[in-house]
Amino acid sequence: MKTTLNDITRIATFAAIIAVLGIPGSFSPFGLAVPITLQTLGVMLAGAILGWWRGAASVVVVLVLTAAGLPLLSGGRGGIGAFFTPSSGYLYGWIVGAAVVGLIVHLGARRPVWWRVALGSIVGGILVVYAFGIPVMAGMLGMTLTEAAVANVIFVPGDLIKAGLTVALTLAVWRAYPRAFVTPRPLTASTPERDTVTAE
């Protein structure tokens, strides 16, 4: 896997987008330990537009900078302590979630289509993230997995809205600037490995 300057630029751009989406802050409905934040939208978009490894890398950049002390999480949270809270499992889930979104949207596809973006956002951006977040939340708060899962139901409508926004924004970016996407092309002996974009 060859990393180019374009890759680094894309990854840095989406890391910045994820961080900016934390500026509006967050709120915890009914006093729950896990806040609602727009940053999950950035995670979904990173995977949908950049593909699996670039999308995951953009999340890693955000989390590494957060661990270093920068207040990049919603509400201005930062520091290593952010990774040892009831909501920390969701942060780890962002990495895998972005990768799964990218795999579903891009694998074998030459352009994004709405149903693949929707499926990727729901599976990767919601189910995978919950699969990491719920067990950590349950363990740290002394809840059963069932109790933690039920507590997370309140987040589902908002996350589905984010998935819908991801579909709309991804297709809009494709129409306006298809070069933001990296579309793989089969390699041959005479074809050097490079980023290629095919606008159809």
Results as ranks from 00 to 15, higher is better:
K2C: 03
K2D: 08
L5H: 05
N6Y: 07
D7L: 07
D7P: 15
T9I: 15
I11G: 13
A12I: 09
T13C: 12
A15W: 03
A15E: 04
A15H: 05
A16Q: 09
A16G: 14
A16D: 11
I17Q: 10
G22L: 12
I23D: 14
P24Y: 07
F30C: 10
V34T: 10
Q39V: 07
Q39R: 09
Q39D: 06
L41N: 07
G42F: 01
G42K: 08
V43Q: 05
L45G: 11
L45S: 11
A46W: 02
I49N: 02
I49V: 15
W52D: 00
W52Q: 05
W53N: 14
A56W: 01
A57Q: 01
V59H: 02
V61N: 09
V61R: 08
L63Q: 11
L65E: 03
L65P: 12
T66S: 13
A68M: 15
L70F: 15
L72Q: 07
L73I: 05
S74T: 05
S74N: 10
S74E: 13
G75A: 13
G78R: 14
G78S: 13
G79L: 11
F84E: 05
F84R: 12
P86Q: 05
S88F: 08
S88Q: 09
G89L: 00
Y92I: 10
G93A: 07
G93V: 00
I95N: 09
V96M: 03
A99L: 11
A99F: 10
A99I: 04
V100M: 08
V101T: 09
L103R: 04
L103I: 08
I104V: 11
I104Y: 12
V105S: 02
H106N: 07
H106E: 01
H106T: 01
G108E: 03
G108N: 11
A109M: 08
W114C: 00
R116Y: 00
S121Q: 09
G124N: 05
G124E: 01
G125M: 06
I126M: 12
I126V: 14
I126N: 02
V128S: 02
V129K: 02
A131C: 03
A131Y: 03
A131V: 05
G133C: 06
G133R: 10
P135A: 11
V136Y: 05
V136I: 13
M137G: 00
A138K: 11
A138H: 10
G139L: 15
M140T: 09
G142S: 06
G142M: 05
T144F: 12
L145G: 15
T146P: 13
E147C: 01
V150M: 08
A151R: 04
N152Y: 10
V153T: 09
F155D: 00
V156A: 12
V156H: 01
V156C: 06
P157N: 03
G158C: 03
G158A: 08
L160F: 13
I161K: 08
G164H: 12
G164P: 14
L165N: 07
A168N: 01
A168P: 00
L169F: 12
W174F: 04
R175S: 13
A176F: 06
A176I: 06
P178L: 13
R179Q: 12
A180H: 03
F181D: 00
V182P: 02
V182K: 06
A189F: 01
S190N: 08
D195A: 11
T196V: 14
T196E: 14
T198P: 00
